[in-house]
């Protein structure tokens, strides 16, 4: 298989397989999670649970008033923000990515200049390396880390790295690097529904749930 055939495979058959497993996994996991259910709490709610739920969805994206966690774990907090925002910019505001999304779901929006996206990609890569180094350096974090933590970091990092290297023409010819980039995204798609990366789908729902339960019990948030 030459590099062009490799590229065509990842754009065709490979993409079909990856999208298939991704959709299958996402639907499966969403149904499974939301059908788990809990026993109905028959006690009278102390606060309006719905409002508390919605509040939590937004509040947890803001730094706390006393800047507690920001001060206690600045690398995780700031690094986490930087790479999440960076990923969103790189994935959703780079023109070729928008073209891909448009061709798959029919939605499109204006992109950013490629040099700006390039800068964001570098910042994202740097932030991800810093949070990894922090995880390795801090004994507690290292102790709490399992294979899944290292694995999910790798499959998230590789698409950014290969995409940036393809654009910069580093190490391998563009065609090969582009194919590797698409392949790494496909691996991410396959892995996402079955690992902690599924938080991309569950983050808002679980925040609402936590907020609603707490509100019901009287912890107004």
């Amino acid at each position: 298989m030459n590099e062009m055939q490799f590229l065509t495979w990842v754009r065709g058959t490979g993409l079909n397989i990856a999208v298939g497993i991704f959709l299958l996994g996402v639907i499966w996991r969403l149904i499974e999670i939301y059908s788990l259910g809990r026993k109905k709490d028959l006690s009278a709610p102390r606060n309006v649970p719905g409002a508390s739920g919605w509040h939590t969805v937004f509040r947890r994206s803001m730094p706390p008033k006393d800047m507690g966690m920001v001060k206690k774990s600045p690398v995780s907090y700031i690094g986490g923000y930087v790479f999440h925002i960076g990923l969103a910019v790189v994935v959703f505001l780079f023109a070729p990515h928008i073209k891909f999304i448009e061709s798959v779901v029919g939605l499109s929006w204006p992109g950013l200049p490629s040099q700006f996206v390039d800068l964001v990609a570098v910042i994202t890569i740097a932030a991800m390396v810093v949070v990894l180094a922090d995880r390795i350096n801090k004994p507690v974090k290292r102790y709490l880390s399992t294979f899944e933590d290292w694995f999910t970091w790798t499959v998230t990092f590789l698409p950014v790295l290969t995409g940036w290297m393809a654009v910069q023409h580093l190490l391998l010819p563009y065609t090969t690097m582009l194919a590797l980039h698409i392949l790494s995204v496909e691996i991410l798609l396959v892995v996402l529904p079955f690992t902690k990366l599924f938080h991309a789908f569950t983050v808002w729902g679980s925040r609402y749930y936590n907020g609603a339960v707490n509100g019901h019990k009287g912890v107004a948030v």
């Binding site: 065509t8 754009r11 065709g12 058959t13 993409l15 079909n16 397989i17 999208v19 298939g20 497993i21 991704f22 959709l23 299958l24 996994g25 996402v26 639907i27 499966w28 996991r29 969403l30 149904i31 499974e32 059908s35 788990l36 070729p96 990515h97 073209k99 891909f100 061709s103 798959v104 582009l178």
Partner: peptide, 30 residues
């Protein structure tokens, strides 16, 4: 465009159906 799928995505409906079936089956098991 190079960033577009080379072949049409044919698996969408099938994958969603299989995923839903798997989800429902696992839910019943749970």
């Amino acid at each position: 465009a190079l960033s577009m799928p080379a072949d049409p995505l044919k698996v969408v409906a099938g994958a969603v159906a299989v995923g839903a079936a798997a989800g429902v089956a696992v839910s019943f098991a749970n």
